[in-house]
Every structure is written in structure tokens, then in C-alpha cells.
Design a protein around this nucleic acid. Structure first.
Lengths: 325, 325
DNA sequence: TTGAAAGCGCTAACAG
DNA sequence: CTGTTAGCGCTTTCAA
């Protein structure tokens, strides 16, 4: 039961391997209809399946894209991965998935593995965008960064500043007074932009006096820990830098016997499915995940690569946690 | 800046391609220490990176595993994917990820793609295990089914029946009277086992009179819809067949103004991270995700394949939703 | 211990 | 329109 090859098909069809190749690929040379039919029949009969490995070796493309996320178990990245896989499939590509665990070494090791596999391109959320970019450039591999990126590199991001401004203004509009914030890690560019937006909104509204802010990782536990710090000062409203953190905040509020939104109003950032399913549902800044994924795949598969620095718009999805209705 | 090949390294080291191969792979022939050092230096100098594609073509193995899940955005599958990737990485394998969207056609198409890519093996949650098994057997590709599997096929599952029994008994133990259930799809084997466990527990406890059951998909919306049906009859306790459904049930309870666990007690199945983060936290039957992933990868990479039909133990994780303090 | 050479399965010139 | 053939980069006999 050895592998059926093109030669087997050629033999069965009484023709040459080249013709079989032409038929399978619809080119580059034309094939007489009769011959084509015979080849097709032979393919059926033999159960021939083209060998992608051999194809990649000669042709160049592996029709495979790599995706590196910090943690696939994080709902936001899981949705993103789903969207990327979906877009890749539509473009006839397959995706290699890997978790960097937010670790630079791991990330670089993963990239190395991907390069050995000769992937056509990679989508990545990188901890070390400059190093990663250099490695990929050297290997001549296409890439698109989501979030942090080195200068000149193709990247897709969202308007973190604007989103944070919108969420904060909305919260202030409810008349809760000062809005506290549970932000992301201190060195993170994305986190920083969200913080800046929050601060800008408060400042321009003249509500920036005596506000509280804490740095926390983008996790449920981070949100919980941040909440514990902040709640001591009894804020009436909190903006969190990610949905995961908001989930943690919700839990902390429950543990403290605080009712959301009656005692504490919340707005957050991401718009993952979890934000809709939380109780109460979370008012959040929605990231256009599908659009990001499609753009990324397009960028990596487009025949002639054009650098791209996209900053996508975000929208505020108003739900229950902020106190509306 | 063409690709650096083994021939380039050989030239730089003043030796033959064969020797470079021996050094890179540590065999199959020994190499004199001096030569080895020269080759290593040449590799550094040239920036050589072995070509996995060529390697796979000649050698056989692609060092790649496939993973097919119905929906990566589902928290449970996302955690599973993370665990599989982790285990695969430890075994020096990379994983190709794909969503079948719970659709048989899509699943088979994905398998076809994987087969073309010559993956070494595949882990799958299958809608059509018999057909899938036949296809893979024909291609001589190793596989392990998670959940539903055809007879004789390697599979890894959990004690769905026992877990459901434990959860139900626990709920009954609180003295809530009849325990209703939001089950999975009607034709699903896993769902059926959980239902059977629930029913068995109630029957043996003599509490099976007049109980309510509804079929629903394993989704948040399914849980919500099921809740709407069930809540009309004011059950005091509900067992759901999955965490996702429980999240939906929680939301429905909130919408109805029901307090959990005071007005309604809940126990569920899966033990995804979401169950811990929900408010109130969910009492749930914990699936050993990491263990399942490790077993699966082991099964696919073990030098000599032994059929495996594993049914792993599950544990009840008691949290707030059932009414325990 | 090292090297030459035969493929792995396929694509794409290049001839016919 | 069809067939022959030269590689793609690597591993591994088989000889030296």
C-alpha cells in the first residue's frame, strides 16, 4: 500500500507525468480534453493525492501560514486564531499554531521552527518585535505584526487611544465622577495607549483629579488583583484595559458584595464573546477581530507585498455593566 | 540572498554534503571531532538552516501533527488546543490547527488537506468518526479521536457517565428535590452518556419522577434557550452538559431575577477556566485536559503504535453555584 | 571516517 | 499537445 504517485497515474492513463501535472494544476500547458478526462479517471481509479511536500520543495510555497499568540487559552486570542484560520482557509492556506507563552525565547524558537518548515508567512503578537523582524527579514519571510511592531514593519492594530477615550467618556457621562483604571503591563505599548486615552478623556473633561490607576497583566487574575487595590478607595466606576481583567473585576466586586452596575460601573476593552456572556454583560470597546484576521492573511498572501500599517477603528458596545438601561 | 543549502556548508567546511548531514543529525555515521567542529563553524558562518520540506520529502516524517476541533473560539477547545500544542512542542512537533465548524464536509476536507501536507498524525473531535477513520486508515495516517470514535480506533475520552452521576448526586444531596438537565445534541454520544449518568443517579436515588430534560447545542445560546424552557417549571436545581451552557443558564437566571445558588442551584460539566471565573463560580465536572493532550500526542508519536482506548477519570470541582457555602 | 550518488514526488523548462 | 528531463535540498546506502 505504498504511496500513489504521479508516475502511477501517468502509467494508468497511458501518458506522461508532465501531463498529469498539467491536469492537476490546470497548467502551465494546455491538455487535450480527451487526455484530460483519461487522467482524471486514472486519478480516481488510483486514489492519487498530490504530495504537498514534494510540491513545496520544487515550487516554493508551502501554502502554510504561521500564527504565534501568547496564549491560545485566552479567549481573545482564541477568537483571533479562529478568525485567522478561517481567513487562511478561504485563501487555501493552512495554519501552524503556536503559543509563545509571552516569552521572548520561546517566541524566537517558534519562529525558527516555522522558518525550517518554510512557511509562507507569519502572523504574530510579538514580545520582541525588533528581533523577530530582523530574523524574518533575514530569512526573507513575510510577516505581519498584531499590536506591537518594529518601525517600517507591516502591522495591524486598533485605535487603542480612541477606544479608551470613548469608553471613559461614556462612563463619565453617567455622572459617576472619577473613573479609575486597571491597566495592562507597564512596558506594553498597547496598554500604554489605552491608559493614555483614559487619562486624556478625564483630563479634557476636567475629571482627572485624584484618579486611581494600577498596572496589571491582561488576565482574569490581574483584574481581580487590580480590583482589590482599587476597590479599597470605593471608586464608583472602573475602566479595565481588557475583557479578561473585567471578568476578574466582576468576580472581585461580587466577593465584596458590590452590585454591578448599581454600586460599581464597568467598561472594558476587547469585545470578546465573554464580554457579552458575562453577568452583567460588559460594555466594551469592540476590536474588529475578523477584519484584522482577514487583513493579515491578505497581507501575507497578496501577490505583490506592500507594506501596511493599519490602525483599525473600534466601536463602543454598550451593554449593562456601565449602567445604561 | 538565495537559500543556504547543505552544499554551501559542505563547501565552506571543505567536506561533503553527507558529512554535513551526519553532523546535523548526529548520525547515522560517526564524524571525526575535528571535521565536526569545522562543519559546525561553517554552519554558523553561512547561517545554514536545515530545510524541513526537503527533509520530509526524503525522510518521511514532517514532524507535524494536525488538530481538528469544532470551534477554537469555544473555551474548552481553546484550552485543549493549547495543551496539545504544548505537548507537541515538548515532543518536537508542530501543530496544524483547523476548525471543522462541526460540519462533516468541512471536517473531511480538512483531513484531505492535512493528508496532502503529509502530517504524521491527527488529533480530532469528529462529527463522522467512521468516515474519518476510513479515510485516515486508507492513507496510513495515525490518528486519535477525542470523544466519539469508531470501533477499534484509538480514542481518548472521559467518564462522562460517572461525572454526570457525581454532579447529580451532589446536587440531590443538597436536598433540592428533582434536578432538571440541559443536555447536549440528541445524536451526540458524549451528550448521551452525560444524560444517562444524570438519569441513573436520579433513578437510583428514587428522585427520577417528573424530571425535566431538554436537548440543546453545547453553546452559551443553547444554555440560554434551554434555561428558558426549563425555568418555566421553576426547578430548584439544574445540571448542564457543558460549561458553555451553564454560562448561558447563568445569564438566563439573571434575566429572570433568579439568584444562584439561592433560588437555583447549578452544576455543570467540563471544568474550563470560564467555570472558575463565572459569578458565581460553577461547580463542575473537571475534564483532565492536559492529560488528554499528552496522551494523544504520545499516542501519535510513540515509535510503535499500540491501539488505545482510554477513558479518563473526572473529578467534581465544588464551587459556589451548587449552594455549598 | 568520508564521499559519490541515487532517489523522495513533483514542476517546469525544453524538445518534439 | 505531449513527453523527457533536470533539478528542489536532503538522507542514506554503498564504496573507498
Amino acid at each position: 500500500m505504498a504511496r500513489v504517485t504521479q508516475a502511477d497515474v501517468a502509467r494508468a492513463a497511458g501518458t506522461s507525468m508532465a501531463v498529469v501535472s498539467y491536469v492537476v494544476n490546470g497548467g502551465p500547458r494546455p491538455v487535450a480534453e480527451g487526455t484530460r478526462l483519461r487522467v482524471l479517471a486514472a486519478i480516481q481509479e488510483t486514489g492519487y493525492r498530490p504530495d504537498g511536500v514534494a510540491r513545496a520543495l520544487v515550487g516554493g510555497s508551502t501554502m502554510t501560514l504561521g500564527l504565534i499568540v501568547p496564549d491560545i487559552a485566552n479567549e481573545f486570542f482564541a477568537e483571533l486564531a479562529g478568525a485567522v484560520e478561517h481567513a487562511a482557509r478561504a485563501a487555501k492556506r493552512t495554519v501552524l499554531l503556536a503559543n509563545s507563552e509571552g516569552d521572548a525565547e520561546t517566541e524566537l524558537g517558534l519562529l525558527e521552527t516555522f522558518l525550517q518548515r518554510r512557511i509562507d508567512g507569519v502572523v504574530l503578537i510579538s514580545k520582541v518585535p525588533v528581533t523577530a523582524a530582523r530574523l524574518l527579514e533575514l530569512a526573507g519571510t513575510r510577516r505581519v505584526f498584531l499590536g506591537a511592531a518594529a518601525a517600517g514593519e507591516s502591522s495591524i492594530g486598533v485605535d487603542n487611544f480612541g477606544g479608551a477615550v470613548a469608553a471613559t467618556i461614556h462612563l463619565v457621562g453617567h455622572g459617576y465622577g472619577p473613573v479609575a483604571m486597571i491597566g495592562g503591563p507597564a512596558q506594553d505599548g498597547v496598554a500604554e495607549a489605552r491608559r493614555a486615552g483614559w487619562l486624556h478623556a478625564l483630563t479634557s473633561l476636567g475629571a482627572a483629579d485624584d484618579v486611581d490607576f494600577v498596572h496589571q497583566p491582561f488576565t482574569v487574575d490581574g483584574g481581580y488583583a487590580g480590583a482589590l487595590e482599587l476597590l479599597a478607595r470605593r471608586p464608583r466606576a472602573i475602566f479595565t484595559a481588557s475583557d479578561r481583567q473585567a471578568i476578574g473585576l466582576l468576580r472581585a466586586a461580587a466577593d465584596k458584595g458590590l452590585s454591578v452596575p448599581d454600586d460599581l460601573a464597568i467598561a472594558t476593552f476587547d469585545g470578546s464573546a465573554a464580554s457579552a456572556y458575562a453577568v452583567p454583560s460588559l460594555t466594551t470597546v469592540q476590536q474588529p477581530i475578523a477584519q484584522m484576521a482577514e487583513l493579515a492573511v491578505q497581507q501575507l498572501t497578496h501577490p505583490d507585498p506592500q507594506p501596511l500599517q493599519a490602525v483599525l477603528d473600534v466601536g463602543l458596545v454598550v451593554r449593562r455593566s456601565c449602567g445604561c438601561s
